[in-house]
Design a protein around this nucleic acid. Structure first.
Length: 887
DNA sequence: CTCGTCACG
DNA sequence: ACGTACGTGACGAGT
């Protein structure tokens, strides 16, 4: 006999929270009939969690019956002035009730009473009958019901997090017992329910008074003994209000409900009706869960997967031939696969799944052979992660030629999840859970002790990789992305894995020396700034800095942020002339940034091998670029001299070796010249002009490059950049500090001189409107649903994106091809040189001394011939004994 | 965990 | 009359 457990839910308040938890998806959650369904969906999700955690025998969801209650009769203003419940939520309420009914859960409302009173009454009934009770609500009022038998769970930040109010927790939060909480409210009133208490008494004072006197009644019995004070006067003056507030705050625990506790016992689920309901609402996820559970068998557990647990004895039996295809998944806990602890693995072969926690089994000859033999093809999820992790076990993987993560990223990169479960769900496969569900997150992230739970998860992963492969490949084909997948992304993943594993050597001694130098400079600047400000403050706090500059020193406010004064470079630059403190703050900021992010930051991530091993995120950006984390090697300073010093710490692995750098010249503008077919711009590139000077000549109507002044070139350069970003007169004027009118003139002249660029921009927007996405030269897609938005700002943003994405994305395609060809060349020539870093349009190499001459010849050649465009691709090289000197 | 800020292409 | 440049990641402060 199960324990008697009662779950009481405040239906209105939880529905309200559910509605706002998915408010941003309001318009995407719609039934075929046009009904909003976000609150229904989120309510069900939350209910599932509760049913699982609480595992109740009895459940009741209470609703408010209407506006008029005994409280409004007592006090007309009760809950007055509240914002109306949105229509989009109201329309969902009956359906939530319908769903609960299908789920075998009782709902109840009672005329003249609030849901709170129904819950209070049932909680009392439950305590009497020996139930353990859990109350769920979004409203703190109900916490007065907490007792040793009754816990009140209050939703916080959305609906996923609950704060459990036990009497102990209540004491911690409010300093009083649950019953005393009513008295506290009597004194302080309740703003959200719109009734006052005693004027001038807030939560702190109320709590202290009740802790001293125990109750409102007792307080007023002893009010004469209180020494004369403003507070005493107010207490006496508002006595009636306090007693009224107490009545309003008290939940009726004996309301005339017509149900008994046995009436709220959980009933069997009506699967047929529930299925119809989910279909009506278009809840694919819940439908799939119904199907997976075999609908009607009672339990809603995720499908059981058959698997064999491998150990030292049976591991030898696993055999594969060249005809076999294998699914393989290697699990680690945490994102950083260079260091993350191993959890286990799963391997699917000939319809059998093998699992184990013991990753050393992978090093057994027969398994190792399967993973290393090029001819035995492996399907994985996250090729790069798998390859790097296997390498830690001494396994040199080959034949990994399908990656579910990469495929799903190419098909649609709107969702940038890296979770196998989440991605499977996108394709309607709910047989695999998310890592979040199995491992948790943050502090409570852990591997389940239960073997079956873990092995089921790992087994369901290889299953999903196999099951969804045909569908994903079909989609790639439909998108004309098979070549992008097979000849660019998969090979790029392999190249990146090698770059990451190799890492780049960073000299801690150089950084430590810089740290000392910067610390001295920072101290000097700090002292100067404090003396001018007349006080010490935290220079790193924009809030405190804003206070000093704009209130204490009275400098003019140029720009505000959501939270206060803006103190950005843009603002401070304009204030430089007003006070010498401003320039010093700018200097401080610049050095502090370098010190914290680069000097300290890099020192923290140098591994015992003296190198940093970044991770390139290949499935993150909207455009197809890579990003780099832990550490980010794509934003090492280069623009200021102090910042550049950081690059001196990046050195070749051999003391007399070289860092070799090669970057594309104007790759994005060349792509633009190519895709637009603009004759004038193509001509400029073909002739080998400096493109910015050429543009200056054109837009300023000059006859010869000699007439171009540095200022003109700077302006022209900004226009060129602006074009790539989807220009506006405003943006350009702000960037150059010129008038909007002047900026517009530049733009007009530009389009006059490069007419096909303008055609391209129009065409890019039109195409995105027609197809719903923008595309690169290699068919990489970016979906742009906002291109049809009603709001000008939202739509305009999508339009600029439609212009920029094919340019930025095609440039990303090009350098990926160059990297693949480059790695191939290094291998073919058996060079020891390593490719170590990619920064969007440049590649960095770690070169042994005797290979420098070869590298100088081949790297630019390979980069320049990566693709054939209508304009030449040019790459410039530099080298030196560290990254700083490789310019 | 979000914001402001600033490093890069 | 609107309100804007494109793509990223890391830090310290402050809630």
């Amino acid at each position: 006999m199960a324990d008697k457990k009662l779950l009481l839910i405040d239906g209105n308040s939880v529905a309200f929270r559910a509605f706002y938890a998915l408010y941003r998806q309001l318009e995407s959650f719609k039934s075929p009939d046009g009904l909003h369904t976000n609150a229904i969906y989120a309510f069900k999700n939350m209910l599932d969690v509760l049913l699982k955690d609480v595992d109740p025998t009895h459940v009741l969801v209470a609703f408010d019956a209407g506006k008029v209650t005994f409280r409004t009769k007592m006090y007309g203003e009760y809950k007055g002035g509240r914002a109306k419940t949105p229509e989009e939520l109201l329309e969902q309420m009956p359906y939530i009730q319908e769903m609960l009914h299908d789920l075998g859960i009782k709902t109840y409302e009672l005329k003249n009473y609030e849901a709170d009173d129904i819950i209070g009454t049932f909680a009392a009934k439950g305590e009497k009958a020996g139930f353990t009770t859990t109350i769920v609500t979004g409203d703190r009022d109900l916490t007065q019901l907490a007792s040793d038998k009754t816990t009140v769970e209050v939703t916080k930040s959305g609906v996923s997090q609950l704060e459990a109010y036990t009497p102990e927790h209540m004491k911690e939060v409010n300093g009083v017992t649950p019953t005393e909480f009513i008295d506290m409210k009597a004194l302080m009133g309740d703003n959200s329910d719109n009734y006052p208490g005693v004027e001038g008494i807030g939560p702190k004072t109320a709590s202290n008074l009740i802790q001293e006197y125990g109750s409102v009644e007792n307080l007023y019995d002893h009010i004469d003994e209180m020494k004369k004070s403003k507070r005493k006067e107010r207490l006496i003056h508002d006595k009636d209000k306090a007693f009224l507030a107490k009545k309003l705050a008290t939940i009726d625990r004996d309301s005339p409900v017509t149900l008994d506790i046995d009436d709220v016992k959980r009933q069997p689920v009506d699967y047929e009706k529930l299925r119809q309901f989910y279909e009506k609402m278009n809840f694919r996820k819940f439908l799939a869960e119904l199907n997976a559970s075999g609908a009607g068998q009672g339990s809603a557990d995720v499908e059981k997967v058959e698997y064999t647990v491998l150990n030292d004895d049976n591991v030898k039996d696993v055999k594969a031939t060249e005809k076999d295809t294998v699914e393989f998944y290697l699990e680690m806990l945490g994102a950083n696969y260079h260091l993350a602890p191993f959890v286990g693995f799963s391997l699917k072969l000939n319809d059998k799944i093998y699992v184990s926690r013991d990753v050393e089994l992978l090093e057994e000859d027969n398994i190792k052979h399967i993973l290393e033999d090029e001819k035995i093809k492996k399907n994985v999820f996250d090729l790069k992660r798998t390859m790097v992790a296997a390498h830690r076990l001494g396994i040199h993987t080959h034949g990994l030629d399908y990656d579910m993560l990469l495929a799903s990223y190419l098909i649609n990169n709107e969702n940038n999840s890296n979770d196998l479960g989440e991605i499977a769900h996108l394709y309607g496969d709910y047989s695999v859970k998310t890592d979040l569900e199995v491992y948790g997150k943050g502090k409570s992230e852990h591997v389940p002790d239960d073997d079956d739970e873990l092995f089921n998860h790992l087994a369901s992963k290889v299953n999903a990789i196999e099951k969804l492969k045909p569908e994903l490949l079909k989609k790639l084909k439909e998108h004309e992305q098979d070549a992008l997948f097979d000849t660019i992304e998969i090979p790029t993943a392999r190249v990146l894995a090698r770059m990451e594993m190799n890492g780049m050597k960073v000299e801690a001694s150089t950084l430590l020396q810089l740290q000392n130098e910067f610390a001295i400079k920072l101290k000097e600047l700090e002292d100067k700034i404090y003396s001018q400000a007349g006080e010490k403050f935290n220079l790193n706090s924009p809030k405190q800095l804003g206070h000093i500059l704009f209130e204490k020193l009275g400098l003019p406010v140029i720009k505000k942020t959501k939270t206060g004064y803006s103190t950005s470079v843009e603002v401070l630059d304009q204030l430089k002339t007003q006070s010498p403190i401003v320039s010093e703050i700018l200097d401080y900021r610049q050095i502090a940034k370098i010190q914290s992010t680069y000097v300290k930051g890099l020192l923290d991530v140098i591994q015992p091998d003296g190198r940093v091993h970044t991770r390139y995120l290949q499935t993150l950006t909207a455009t197809g670029r890579l990003s780099s984390v832990d550490p980010n090697l794509q934003n090492i300073p280069t623009r200021t001299e102090e910042g550049k010093q950081i690059r001196k710490a990046f050195v070749p692995s051999e003391p007399d070796g070289y860092i070799f750098s090669c970057d594309y010249s104007q790759v994005e503008l060349r792509v633009l010249a190519h895709v637009s077919g603009d004759q004038n711009m193509q001509e400029a590139f073909k002739t080998g002009y400096d493109i910015h000077s050429h543009t200056a000549m054109k837009i300023f109507h000059l006859d010869s490059p000699d007439q171009v002044t540095p200022l003109m070139r700077r302006h022209a350069k900004a226009v060129n950049f602006g074009i790539v970003y989807g220009i506006s007169d405003y943006g350009l004027s702000k960037n150059l500090g010129i008038s909007r009118k002047r900026a517009q003139e530049f733009i007009d002249n530009y389009f006059e001189q490069y007419p096909q660029i303008k055609d391209y921009m129009n065409k890019a927007v039109q195409e995105a409107r027609a197809k719903g996405y923008a595309e690169t030269i290699m068919h990489r897609r970016r979906y742009l649903p906002d291109i049809h938005a009603k709001k000008y700002t939202v739509r305009a943003f999508a339009e600029r994106t439609a212009i920029n994405s094919p340019i930025q994305g095609s440039a990303a395609d090009i350098i990926k091809i160059a990297m693949i060809n480059m790695q191939k060349k290094l291998d073919e020539l058996h060079l020891k040189t390593k490719m170590v870093v990619q920064v969007h349009d440049e590649l960095i190499f770690d070169v042994p001394k005797d290979e420098l001459e070869t590298i100088k010849k081949i790297v630019p050649k390979v980069m320049q011939s990566a693709v054939k465009l209508d304009v030449p691709l040019i790459a410039d090289s530099g080298w030196g004994h560290n990254w700083y000197d490789a310019k």
